[in-house]
Design a protein around this nucleic acid. Structure first.
Length: 317
DNA sequence: AAGGCGGTCAACCGCCGGGAT
DNA sequence: CATCCCGGCGGTTGACCGCCT
């Protein structure tokens, strides 16, 4: 059962905001601050839904918002973070001062995803499209994967974390091996977090030459840049996980549609995946690379100068 | 000049997690 | 412990605009 409407839709104005409405909302927030949005329309004299007021404020009226075009550095950062986090627009926007999640989302959907596609990169997986086709062919002969979702509602929403970590390598466009989303490991193997390679013929990646299996830790240990980037994603996710209080925030794949968010009531698949994440985080702590993250995030040159930069890909303007 | 078309982006919708009661 | 309510999130929609034919 969904929630009832937050306001009486019959008496609520919809559509574009007028300057007068903006002025009222700004006047109210400047004197009373934000919060308790459900009461804001009444107190500010607006015939709007509280949600609409909040959205208008956070996406347009809020102080310190940037309204100019995205810079090359911001583009690079969005692509990098999207490769690591998927469509966690609020998380990505948090790394871009003055930008809102709506800004980032729109920019991605209208500009960046097309840029990537034009350059032969799948904007969802951040892998070369040609390699994707190859891996699709490999998947076609694999035995079917067990259903992850008990209600079948969001079977496409595998964890972005495990999927994204090797993609950090991919986003560096070093053509790491084609990796599939992590299979749900049996309990005795969860701590090992072993990922099977789909395509043994893929270009070299750490440990790629040494067998059909590799561990996340191999990536972390063998490539400092990838380790740092991966750890960065984990730290961001971990922080978000902490802030959000635990469950639910790690689910939903980068391309899941139709409200595939959250762990819901916690199917077995998500439990396994959560353990998988824990194993990665533990590994990260051991290597100590998480300390690098703050420095990397604080240094724009990391994004501009790393092999993952768009300049290397030539997709700058 | 006008209609079609695609791109952009503000706004809406439905769902979720978490705090309050 | 259960329920209600609020804020937040991501996906989607639709109005607007500029370009092209």
């Amino acid at each position: 059962m969904g929630r009832p409407p937050c306001c009486d839709k019959a008496n609520v104005k919809k559509g574009p905001w007028t300057p007068e409405e903006d002025a009222k909302l700004l006047a109210y927030t400047s004197t009373h601050g934000t919060g308790n949005w459900t009461n804001v329309p009444q107190r500010a004299g607006l015939k709007r839904c509280g949600k609409s007021c909040r959205l208008r404020y956070t996406n347009y009226l809020r102080p310190n918002l940037k309204h100019e075009n995205f810079t090359q550095e911001e583009e690079d950062l969005i692509v990098t973070l999207h490769a690591m986090l998927g469509s966690r627009w609020s998380l990505i926007a948090n790394q871009l001062p003055g930008r809102t999640d709506n800004d980032v989302k729109n920019y991605w959907n209208t500009k960046l995803s097309k840029k990537l596609r034009q350059r032969g990169i799948d904007p969802i997986t951040h892998r070369p499209i040609a390699d994707l086709m190859h891996s699709i062919g490999a998947l076609a002969i694999r035995p079917p994967q067990p259903a992850h979702s008990p209600n079948g509602g969001s079977s496409s929403s595998y964890l972005p974390g495990p999927a994204a970590l090797p993609l950090v390598h991919d986003v560096a466009y070093h053509a790491a091996g084609i990796l599939e989303p992590p299979p749900l490991p049996p309990p005795q193997q969860q701590q090992q977090a072993v990922i099977a390679r789909v395509d043994a013929d893929a270009p070299a990646s750490p440990a790629a030459d040494h067998g059909q299996q590799l561990k996340w830790s191999d990536f972390l240990a063998d490539d400092a840049a990838a380790a740092a980037a991966a750890s960065e994603a984990q730290q961001v996710l971990g922080q978000y996980h902490h802030e959000a209080g635990g469950s639910g925030v790690l689910a939903a794949g980068s391309s899941s549609a139709g409200g595939g968010r959250g762990c819901g009531d916690g199917g077995g698949g998500d439990d396994g995946a959560a353990a998988f994440i824990d194993a990665i985080l533990d590994c990260d702590k051991e290597t100590g690379v998480d300390q690098l993250i703050a420095e990397l995030l604080a240094d724009p040159a990391y994004y501009a100068g790393s092999s993952s930069s768009s300049s290397e890909m030539g997709w700058g303007c």
